[in-house]
C-alpha cells in the first residue's frame, strides 16, 4: 500500500512539521495503531515527492517525541504507549492553548483575565 499524505506548499509550517502532523493525525483518528509498520523513509519520500532528508527529519522528531520507534534493520513502528491517541490530542490542545495564552499576554491580559475570557467563549459556544 502506498501511503498518502496531504501536504501543502502554502502551509506556513516547514514540510517536516506537516509530515509529523499528518502522521500524528493518522494515529489520533485510529488509522494507524500501535505496532503499525511505517513505510521506509525512501518509500515515503518517493510516494510524496518530498526529499529523503525531510522525511528523515520528521521520523527523527517523531521518535524523539515517542510517537514512533525505529529498530535497526526492521524499520519504524507506531510506538507502544498507553493512550497514544489521547496523548496526541492533549498535545495538540496544549499547543493551541499556548498560542491563545501568548496572544493574550501580548494584549496585556493577566492570567485570571485570560481564564475569564476563555470561560466566556466556552459558555457562548454551549449556548449555540
Amino acid at each position: 500500500m502506498t501511503i498518502k499524505l496531504f501536504l501543502s506548499q502554502t502551509d506556513n509550517r516547514p514540510m517536516y512539521l506537516q509530515i509529523m502532523a499528518q502522521i500524528k493525525q493518522k494515529v489520533m483518528v485510529g488509522d494507524w495503531l500501535t505496532g503499525f509498520h511505517l513505510p521506509s523513509i525512501r518509500e515515503l519520500a518517493a510516494s510524496t515527492g518530498v526529499s529523503v532528508i525531510t522525511v528523515k527529519r520528521a521520523y527523527l522528531e517523531l521518535e524523539r517525541e515517542g510517537v514512533i520507534v525505529t529498530q535497526q534493520g526492521k524499520g519504524s513502528f507506531i510506538a507502544q504507549t498507553d493512550n497514544m491517541q489521547t496523548k496526541l490530542q492533549d498535545e495538540e490542545l496544549d499547543q493551541l492553548l499556548t498560542q491563545v495564552a501568548e496572544q493574550a499576554r501580548q494584549m496585556g491580559l493577566d492570567e485570571p483575565a485570560t481564564v475569564q475570557r476563555l470561560q466566556q467563549v466556552y459558555q457562548r459556544m454551549l449556548k449555540k
Partner: peptide, 29 residues
C-alpha cells in the same frame, strides 16, 4: 513525480538545475 520515484534506490543520485525554487524546495536533499 518520476524524479521522486528514483529516490527509492539509495544508490542513485540526481543533480538538477532550475530557476524554479518551488520544484527544488520540495524534492531536494
Amino acid at each position: 513525480n518520476e524524479l521522486a520515484l528514483i529516490l527509492q534506490d539509495e544508490q542513485r543520485t540526481v543533480l538538477f538545475s532550475s530557476h524554479n525554487t518551488a520544484d527544488v524546495e520540495k524534492i531536494s536533499d
